[in-house]
Amino acid sequence: MIEISSIHKRFEDQEVLKGITATFENGKTNLIIGKSGAGKTVLLKCIVGLEIPEEGTITYDGRDIIHMHKKEAAKMRQEIGMLFQNAALFDSMSVLENVMFPLDMFSSMTYNERIKRARACLERVNLIEAQDKSPEELSGGMQKRAAIARAIALGPKYLFCDEPNSGLDPQTSLIIDELIHGITEEYNITTIVNTHDMNSVMNIGDHILFLANGELSWEGNNKEILNTDNKTLNEFLFSSEILRQVKEQALHSK
Protein backbone atom coordinates (compact mmCIF):
# COMPACT_ATOMS: atom_id res chain seq x y z
CA MET A 1 0.00 0.00 0.00
CA ILE A 2 1.28 3.43 -0.93
CA GLU A 3 0.04 6.57 0.75
CA ILE A 4 0.78 10.07 -0.43
CA SER A 5 -0.32 13.22 1.31
CA SER A 6 -0.37 16.85 0.19
CA ILE A 7 2.27 16.50 -2.50
CA HIS A 8 3.41 19.86 -3.88
CA LYS A 9 5.78 20.13 -6.82
CA ARG A 10 6.80 23.19 -8.78
CA PHE A 11 9.17 23.85 -11.67
CA GLU A 12 10.49 27.41 -11.52
CA ASP A 13 7.32 29.55 -11.47
CA GLN A 14 4.91 26.80 -12.56
CA GLU A 15 3.13 24.88 -9.82
CA VAL A 16 2.50 21.45 -11.35
CA LEU A 17 1.12 19.58 -8.33
CA LYS A 18 -0.92 21.54 -5.81
CA GLY A 19 -1.33 19.22 -2.88
CA ILE A 20 -2.36 15.70 -3.82
CA THR A 21 -3.48 13.19 -1.22
CA ALA A 22 -4.34 9.61 -2.07
CA THR A 23 -4.04 5.99 -1.01
CA PHE A 24 -3.13 3.18 -3.39
CA GLU A 25 -4.04 -0.29 -2.15
CA ASN A 26 -2.32 -3.52 -3.08
CA GLY A 27 -3.88 -6.05 -5.39
CA LYS A 28 -5.66 -3.20 -7.17
CA THR A 29 -4.87 -1.46 -10.42
CA ASN A 30 -4.77 2.23 -9.60
CA LEU A 31 -5.14 4.55 -12.58
CA ILE A 32 -4.11 8.19 -12.77
CA ILE A 33 -5.90 9.93 -15.61
CA GLY A 34 -5.93 13.50 -16.84
CA LYS A 35 -5.29 15.74 -19.78
CA SER A 36 -1.87 15.98 -21.35
CA GLY A 37 0.20 18.28 -19.17
CA ALA A 38 -1.95 17.68 -16.10
CA GLY A 39 1.09 16.42 -14.20
CA LYS A 40 0.57 12.66 -14.32
CA THR A 41 4.16 11.88 -15.18
CA VAL A 42 5.45 14.34 -12.60
CA LEU A 43 3.26 12.74 -9.91
CA LEU A 44 4.47 9.26 -10.84
CA LYS A 45 8.09 10.43 -10.82
CA CYS A 46 7.56 11.92 -7.37
CA ILE A 47 6.08 8.67 -6.10
CA VAL A 48 8.98 6.55 -7.37
CA GLY A 49 11.55 9.08 -6.21
CA LEU A 50 12.90 10.32 -9.56
CA GLU A 51 11.69 13.81 -8.56
CA ILE A 52 11.60 15.18 -5.04
CA PRO A 53 8.42 17.09 -4.09
CA GLU A 54 8.81 20.33 -2.14
CA GLU A 55 6.13 19.37 0.35
CA GLY A 56 4.24 16.27 1.37
CA THR A 57 4.96 12.72 2.41
CA ILE A 58 5.09 9.45 0.50
CA THR A 59 5.04 6.18 2.38
CA TYR A 60 5.39 2.63 1.06
CA ASP A 61 3.75 0.35 3.61
CA GLY A 62 4.63 2.83 6.30
CA ARG A 63 8.17 3.55 5.09
CA ASP A 64 8.76 7.22 4.32
CA ILE A 65 10.78 7.29 1.11
CA ILE A 66 11.58 11.01 0.96
CA HIS A 67 13.49 11.04 4.23
CA MET A 68 14.90 7.57 3.89
CA HIS A 69 18.63 6.89 4.09
CA LYS A 70 20.26 6.47 0.66
CA LYS A 71 21.34 2.87 1.25
CA GLU A 72 17.91 1.89 2.46
CA ALA A 73 16.34 3.62 -0.55
CA ALA A 74 18.58 1.73 -2.96
CA LYS A 75 17.49 -1.51 -1.32
CA MET A 76 13.86 -0.59 -1.53
CA ARG A 77 14.21 0.15 -5.22
CA GLN A 78 14.52 -3.59 -5.74
CA GLU A 79 10.90 -3.92 -4.65
CA ILE A 80 9.87 -1.52 -7.42
CA GLY A 81 9.21 -2.39 -11.04
CA MET A 82 8.66 0.36 -13.53
CA LEU A 83 7.42 0.39 -17.09
CA PHE A 84 8.43 3.52 -18.98
CA GLN A 85 6.46 5.27 -21.69
CA ASN A 86 8.89 4.05 -24.39
CA ALA A 87 9.79 0.72 -22.69
CA ALA A 88 13.41 1.85 -22.08
CA LEU A 89 14.93 -1.56 -22.74
CA PHE A 90 18.73 -1.58 -22.71
CA ASP A 91 19.60 -1.70 -26.38
CA SER A 92 23.03 -3.17 -25.90
CA MET A 93 21.47 -6.38 -24.57
CA SER A 94 19.16 -9.06 -25.95
CA VAL A 95 15.63 -9.45 -24.61
CA LEU A 96 16.62 -12.30 -22.33
CA GLU A 97 19.63 -10.36 -21.02
CA ASN A 98 17.36 -7.40 -20.35
CA VAL A 99 15.07 -9.52 -18.22
CA MET A 100 18.04 -11.16 -16.50
CA PHE A 101 19.70 -7.83 -15.77
CA PRO A 102 17.96 -7.06 -12.44
CA LEU A 103 18.63 -10.64 -11.36
CA ASP A 104 22.31 -10.33 -12.31
CA MET A 105 22.60 -7.14 -10.31
CA PHE A 106 20.61 -7.95 -7.20
CA SER A 107 19.86 -11.62 -6.73
CA SER A 108 22.12 -14.25 -5.29
CA MET A 109 20.81 -16.93 -7.65
CA THR A 110 23.12 -19.10 -9.71
CA TYR A 111 23.39 -18.56 -13.44
CA ASN A 112 20.98 -21.37 -14.25
CA GLU A 113 18.42 -20.20 -11.74
CA ARG A 114 18.59 -16.69 -13.20
CA ILE A 115 18.05 -17.96 -16.74
CA LYS A 116 15.15 -20.06 -15.55
CA ARG A 117 13.54 -17.16 -13.73
CA ALA A 118 14.02 -14.83 -16.73
CA ARG A 119 12.47 -17.40 -19.08
CA ALA A 120 9.54 -17.83 -16.74
CA CYS A 121 8.93 -14.07 -16.79
CA LEU A 122 9.13 -14.01 -20.58
CA GLU A 123 6.67 -16.87 -20.72
CA ARG A 124 4.31 -14.98 -18.45
CA VAL A 125 4.20 -12.15 -21.01
CA ASN A 126 4.13 -14.57 -23.95
CA LEU A 127 7.41 -13.49 -25.44
CA ILE A 128 9.60 -16.54 -25.03
CA GLU A 129 10.12 -16.90 -28.78
CA ALA A 130 11.77 -13.47 -28.98
CA GLN A 131 14.26 -14.05 -26.17
CA ASP A 132 17.37 -13.83 -28.36
CA LYS A 133 16.31 -10.79 -30.35
CA SER A 134 17.60 -7.35 -29.63
CA PRO A 135 15.10 -4.67 -28.55
CA GLU A 136 15.11 -2.75 -31.83
CA GLU A 137 13.95 -5.89 -33.65
CA LEU A 138 10.72 -5.93 -31.61
CA SER A 139 7.45 -4.15 -32.31
CA GLY A 140 6.23 -1.52 -29.85
CA GLY A 141 3.85 -3.93 -28.14
CA MET A 142 6.51 -6.61 -27.81
CA GLN A 143 8.92 -4.07 -26.33
CA LYS A 144 6.30 -3.14 -23.75
CA ARG A 145 5.82 -6.80 -22.88
CA ALA A 146 9.57 -7.35 -22.58
CA ALA A 147 9.72 -4.34 -20.29
CA ILE A 148 6.94 -5.81 -18.16
CA ALA A 149 8.89 -9.05 -17.92
CA ARG A 150 11.95 -7.09 -16.77
CA ALA A 151 9.89 -5.14 -14.27
CA ILE A 152 8.53 -8.30 -12.62
CA ALA A 153 11.78 -10.30 -12.69
CA LEU A 154 12.67 -9.58 -9.07
CA GLY A 155 9.08 -10.12 -7.92
CA PRO A 156 8.30 -6.49 -7.09
CA LYS A 157 5.81 -5.31 -4.49
CA TYR A 158 5.11 -2.10 -6.40
CA LEU A 159 4.61 -1.66 -10.12
CA PHE A 160 4.47 1.68 -11.92
CA CYS A 161 3.52 2.17 -15.55
CA ASP A 162 3.72 5.45 -17.43
CA GLU A 163 1.26 5.31 -20.31
CA PRO A 164 1.70 1.62 -21.11
CA ASN A 165 -0.61 1.95 -24.12
CA SER A 166 0.74 5.01 -25.87
CA GLY A 167 1.42 4.27 -29.52
CA LEU A 168 -0.33 0.90 -29.49
CA ASP A 169 -3.47 -0.21 -31.31
CA PRO A 170 -6.59 -0.93 -29.19
CA GLN A 171 -6.19 -4.72 -29.38
CA THR A 172 -2.56 -4.71 -28.33
CA SER A 173 -3.42 -2.18 -25.62
CA LEU A 174 -5.93 -4.64 -24.29
CA ILE A 175 -3.30 -7.37 -24.05
CA ILE A 176 -0.96 -5.06 -22.13
CA ASP A 177 -3.79 -3.94 -19.84
CA GLU A 178 -4.84 -7.49 -19.07
CA LEU A 179 -1.24 -8.38 -18.38
CA ILE A 180 -0.78 -5.55 -15.91
CA HIS A 181 -4.12 -6.26 -14.27
CA GLY A 182 -3.46 -10.01 -14.10
CA ILE A 183 0.01 -9.63 -12.62
CA THR A 184 -1.30 -7.17 -10.06
CA GLU A 185 -3.91 -9.59 -8.77
CA GLU A 186 -1.73 -12.66 -9.08
CA TYR A 187 1.15 -11.31 -6.98
CA ASN A 188 -0.90 -8.85 -4.90
CA ILE A 189 1.17 -5.90 -6.11
CA THR A 190 0.42 -2.21 -5.60
CA THR A 191 0.11 -0.98 -9.16
CA ILE A 192 -0.14 2.63 -10.35
CA VAL A 193 -0.77 3.30 -14.04
CA ASN A 194 -0.76 6.65 -15.85
CA THR A 195 -3.07 6.63 -18.81
CA HIS A 196 -5.36 8.60 -21.05
CA ASP A 197 -6.68 5.52 -22.79
CA MET A 198 -10.44 5.25 -22.18
CA ASN A 199 -10.41 1.51 -22.85
CA SER A 200 -8.03 0.97 -19.97
CA VAL A 201 -10.11 3.15 -17.72
CA MET A 202 -13.19 1.03 -18.32
CA ASN A 203 -11.40 -2.32 -18.36
CA ILE A 204 -9.00 -2.32 -15.47
CA GLY A 205 -9.84 0.78 -13.42
CA ASP A 206 -10.21 -0.63 -9.91
CA HIS A 207 -9.37 2.77 -8.49
CA ILE A 208 -9.21 5.89 -10.64
CA LEU A 209 -7.77 9.30 -9.82
CA PHE A 210 -8.53 12.22 -12.10
CA LEU A 211 -5.97 15.02 -12.11
CA ALA A 212 -6.88 18.47 -13.36
CA ASN A 213 -4.83 21.63 -12.96
CA GLY A 214 -2.51 19.93 -10.52
CA GLU A 215 -5.31 18.95 -8.17
CA LEU A 216 -7.14 15.73 -7.50
CA SER A 217 -10.47 16.48 -9.07
CA TRP A 218 -12.25 13.13 -8.79
CA GLU A 219 -11.65 9.67 -7.31
CA GLY A 220 -13.60 6.44 -7.76
CA ASN A 221 -13.80 3.21 -9.77
CA ASN A 222 -14.80 2.28 -13.31
CA LYS A 223 -18.47 1.78 -12.40
CA GLU A 224 -18.82 5.10 -10.63
CA ILE A 225 -17.08 7.01 -13.38
CA LEU A 226 -20.05 6.64 -15.75
CA ASN A 227 -22.41 8.35 -13.35
CA THR A 228 -20.20 11.15 -12.24
CA ASP A 229 -21.47 14.70 -12.34
CA ASN A 230 -17.97 16.17 -12.23
CA LYS A 231 -18.02 18.58 -15.18
CA THR A 232 -14.29 18.58 -16.04
CA LEU A 233 -14.16 14.81 -15.83
CA ASN A 234 -17.15 14.41 -18.12
CA GLU A 235 -15.64 16.80 -20.62
CA PHE A 236 -12.40 14.84 -20.48
CA LEU A 237 -13.97 11.39 -20.75
CA PHE A 238 -16.71 12.03 -23.25
CA SER A 239 -14.96 14.47 -25.47
CA SER A 240 -16.47 13.11 -28.69
CA GLU A 241 -20.12 12.92 -29.70
CA ILE A 242 -19.91 9.13 -30.26
CA LEU A 243 -18.68 8.50 -26.74
CA ARG A 244 -21.44 10.67 -25.32
CA GLN A 245 -24.01 8.57 -27.15
CA VAL A 246 -22.41 5.33 -26.01
CA LYS A 247 -22.59 6.58 -22.44
CA GLU A 248 -26.28 7.45 -22.79
CA GLN A 249 -27.03 3.99 -24.11
CA ALA A 250 -25.02 2.30 -21.40
CA LEU A 251 -26.90 4.21 -18.72
CA HIS A 252 -30.31 3.56 -20.27
CA SER A 253 -29.78 -0.15 -20.77
CA LYS A 254 -29.18 -0.63 -17.04
Binding site: V48, K75, Q78, I80, L89, M105
Partner: peptide, 17 residues
Protein backbone atom coordinates in the same frame (compact mmCIF):
# COMPACT_ATOMS: atom_id res chain seq x y z
CA UNK B 1 20.88 8.34 -26.09
CA UNK B 2 20.45 6.20 -23.00
CA UNK B 3 19.47 9.36 -21.12
CA UNK B 4 16.84 10.55 -23.59
CA UNK B 5 15.33 7.08 -24.04
CA UNK B 6 14.97 6.80 -20.24
CA UNK B 7 17.34 3.85 -19.98
CA UNK B 8 19.26 5.72 -17.29
CA UNK B 9 16.01 6.33 -15.38
CA UNK B 10 15.29 2.62 -15.70
CA UNK B 11 18.67 1.83 -14.10
CA UNK B 12 18.07 4.31 -11.30
CA UNK B 13 14.62 2.89 -10.58
CA UNK B 14 16.14 -0.56 -10.19
CA UNK B 15 18.49 0.84 -7.57
CA UNK B 16 21.58 0.72 -9.80
CA UNK B 17 24.06 3.59 -9.43
Amino acid sequence: TMRVTQQIDALEIMGVN
